[in-house]
C-alpha cells in the first residue's frame, strides 16, 4: 500500500493534480459557505458553464486558456450577481439561460476545430492530466490570493452573508463585498474546472458547506469544518481514483456525497 502510494506520487502529473486540487478544494469550501447561505449556489454552477464556453473558444483560436478564461468568467460572475440581485428579472432562469447558452457556444467552438472530441470530454468531466507546470504556478498564486482575501475579509463576508440589509444600513459597502465573493468564486472555478470538470466543479462549492452545516452551529466552525471535509475528500478521492482507475473529479464528488449523507444522519441523531 505504502509502496503503491510512493509510486503514485512519483508521477509528476499526480503531484501537480494534488497541489492544485488541495488548494482549489480549500478555496471552494470556504467560499461555498457564503454562496450556499446567500442562495448563490446556482451562480457557481453557471460560472462553470461559462468557463467551459470560454475555454473551448480559447482552444479553438489557440489563445492561452487560463488567461482568456479567468477574465471572461469574472465578468460573467459580476453579471450573474447583478441579475440575481435585480428582482425584476427572474434570477434563476436568467442564470440557467446564460449557463446553457455558454455551454452551447463552447460545444460549437470546440466541434468546429478538428479532433476536439476527447478534449470536450475532459473539459466537461475533468482530466487529471490537464495541468501544465505554468498552470500549477498560476493556480498556487491565485489560490493563495483567494485564501488571503477570504481571511482578511472574513468578518465582512460574515456580515453581508448574515444580514445584508443591516450591513448596508450601518455603512458596510455590501455590494463591494458581494462582488469580492463573486470575483473569488470565479477564480476558484476556473482553477478547479479542468481537473474536476465543468459539470462537476460546482459540487466542490456546494457539498462541503452543506455537509458542515448538518453538524455545526457556528459560522466559524462551519467554515473550518467545510474546509477540512473538502480537503480530505479530495485527497482520498485522488488516491481512490488512482487505485480504481476512475475519473478523479467524479470520485471526489461521490466521496462528498458519502460524507454529506453520513453527516446528515449524525446531525439527525444529535
Amino acid at each position: 500500500m505504502i509502496e503503491t502510494l510512493h509510486i503514485m506520487f512519483s508521477y509528476t502529473f499526480i503531484v501537480r493534480a494534488l497541489i492544485v486540487g488541495l488548494l482549489v478544494s480549500l478555496c471552494a469550501a470556504l467560499l461555498g459557505v457564503s454562496l450556499v447561505l446567500k442562495r448563490y449556489s446556482m451562480i457557481g454552477d453557471g460560472l462553470s458553464h461559462v468557463g467551459f464556453g470560454a475555454i473551448a473558444i480559447a482552444t479553438a483560436f489557440n489563445w492561452a486558456p487560463m488567461e482568456f478564461t479567468i477574465p471572461v468568467v469574472i465578468l460573467a460572475a459580476f453579471l450573474l450577481l447583478r441579475i440575481s440581485e435585480n428582482s425584476n428579472i427572474k434570477g434563476d432562469s436568467a442564470i440557467a439561460m446564460i449557463s446553457t447558452g455558454a455551454l452551447a457556444i463552447g460545444i460549437l467552438a470546440a466541434s468546429m476545430t478538428t479532433g476536439m472530441n476527447t478534449d470536450i470530454n475532459s473539459y466537461l468531466f475533468g482530466s487529471i492530466l490537464a495541468m501544465s507546470i505554468s498552470d500549477v504556478v498560476m493556480s498556487v498564486v491565485l489560490s493563495l490570493v483567494v485564501l488571503l482575501l477570504f481571511i482578511l475579509f472574513y468578518n465582512k463576508i460574515f456580515a453581508v452573508t448574515f444580514d445584508e440589509t443591516f450591513a448596508k444600513a450601518t455603512g458596510i459597502m455590501a455590494n463591494i463585498y458581494n462582488m469580492l465573493i463573486a470575483f473569488l468564486t470565479a477564480i476558484t472555478i476556473v482553477l478547479g474546472m479542468r481537473m474536476m470538470g465543468a459539470l462537476l466543479i460546482s459540487s466542490l462549492i456546494i457539498f462541503p458547506a452543506l455537509s458542515a452545516m448538518r453538524v455545526c452551529k457556528r459560522f466559524k466552525t462551519v467554515v473550518i469544518t467545510s474546509a477540512i471535509i473538502s480537503v480530505i475528500c479530495f485527497l482520498i478521492g485522488l488516491i481512490t481514483s488512482y487505485f480504481l482507475s476512475t475519473p478523479t473529479g467524479a470520485t471526489v464528488v461521490v466521496l462528498n456525497i458519502v460524507v454529506f449523507v453520513l453527516l446528515t444522519v449524525i446531525g439527525k441523531i444529535k
Binding site: F158, A159, F166, T170, I172, R218, T221, V222
Partner: peptide, 15 residues
C-alpha cells in the same frame, strides 16, 4: 448557522 456572539459582534464592524 451563527452563534449569538458572532451575530452581536458583527455590529462592531466599521466600514
Amino acid at each position: 448557522p451563527a452563534s449569538v456572539s458572532e451575530v452581536v459582534i458583527s455590529g462592531c464592524l466599521k466600514s
